[in-house]
Simulated assay, not measured.
Amino acid sequence: MLPSGVRAPGRWRRSRDKSMRQRCRQCSNSNTNATGIRPSIRMLVGWFRMAGAADHRTIDPVVVGSSIVMALQTIVSRNVDPLQMGIVTVGAFCAGKANNVIPETAVLEISVRSHSPEVRILLERRLRAVVAGQVESYGAQASIELTAGYPVLVNSDSETEFARDIAYQIVGKDRVVDQGPLMLGSEDFAYMLQEVPGCYFFVGNGAGDAMGACAVHNPKYDFNDTLIGVGASYWVP
């Protein structure tokens, strides 16, 4: 979790080293963003239901789905450039309700994240190929539903500089992180930044043993009420 203060996920800093500076400039042209692309995928693996005592007469979608989950783990590690970012997450696996019946179907909910459109295309292509190969090897059937997710969020230079200067005035330079790390979280504010220039930034809720030192989407998250004044003052002239 971030310490109390302000973090503005902005652009790569230039390095004094020429080769590093060239690499950073290349990244700035394509991947300077706070959050990543996130399409979601729903996959249905199915055959027909059968009593558990007659496994040999059907195709178990739980076994097929489990094989798919394991095979998907190789996409990022073996197909994506290690200098790029990519994530394939199986967040839900639903199949059956009884321990003595082979279910008819299994549903896998998958999230794919990247910063680069090229990597996103690669992930989708490899995911479809891996699923098709696994399903065919078991003699099963599968359908894939792909839903386009959020675009890459990119802060504009001038607005980021303006937001940073205001943060300096409120909490001081020592409590402002000018260059936040690239993230693979998705954010719908990316749609706004596609239409108008702006800056998306974070207000730290606490770190270490401080109050509120817990990531969001966590059952132990507790908003740090002392930050209300900091957040409100940011918008006061």
Rank of each mutant, 00 (worst) to 15 (best):
A92S: 15
A92I: 12
A92Y: 12
C94Y: 14
A95R: 06
G96A: 03
G96I: 04
K97A: 13
K97E: 15
A98M: 06
N99I: 09
N100P: 00
N100S: 09
N100Y: 10
N100G: 05
V101A: 09
V101T: 09
I102E: 07
P103F: 02
E104G: 15
T105G: 00
A106S: 09
V107S: 14
L108R: 00
L108F: 01
L108P: 00
E109K: 13
S111D: 13
V112S: 05
S114E: 10
S114Y: 04
H115D: 09
H115T: 13
S116N: 15
S116G: 04
E118V: 12
V119A: 06
L122D: 04
L123T: 08
L123P: 04
E124A: 11
E124Y: 07
R125K: 15
R125A: 15
R126P: 02
L127I: 03
V130T: 14
V130R: 10
V131A: 08
V131W: 01
V131R: 04
V131Y: 03
V131D: 01
A132R: 13
A132Q: 11
Q134W: 00
Q134C: 15
E136F: 07
S137F: 08
Y138G: 01
A140T: 03
Q141K: 14
A142N: 00
A142E: 00
A142V: 00
S143I: 11
I144G: 01
E145N: 12
E145I: 07
L146R: 12
T147N: 12
T147S: 11
G149E: 03
G149M: 05
Y150Q: 06
Y150A: 05
Y150N: 05
N155E: 02
S156V: 02
D157F: 10
S158E: 13
S158P: 00
S158W: 10
S158F: 12
S158L: 10
T160S: 12
T160M: 09
F162Q: 14
F162P: 00
R164D: 00
D165H: 14
I166A: 05
I166N: 05
I166K: 13
Y168D: 09
Q169A: 15
Q169R: 15
Q169N: 12
Q169V: 04
I170Y: 07
V171K: 08
V171H: 01
G172I: 06
G172W: 06
D174N: 15
D174T: 13
R175M: 06
R175W: 10
V176W: 02
V177Y: 05
V177P: 00
D178I: 06
Q179D: 13
Q179E: 14
G180Y: 12
P181W: 08
M183F: 05
M183D: 09
M183R: 13
M183C: 14
M183N: 08
L184W: 04
L184S: 01
L184I: 05
G185F: 11
G185V: 13
G185W: 10
S186G: 12
E187A: 04
D188P: 02
F189L: 03
F189K: 02
A190P: 02
A190R: 06
A190L: 03
L193F: 06
L193R: 04
Q194C: 10
E195N: 11
V196A: 11
V196G: 01
G198D: 10
C199W: 08
Y200N: 00
Y200R: 03
F201L: 11
F201V: 02
F201M: 11
F202N: 13
F202C: 12
F202S: 04
V203S: 09
V203P: 08
V203R: 06
G204E: 09
N205A: 12
G206S: 03
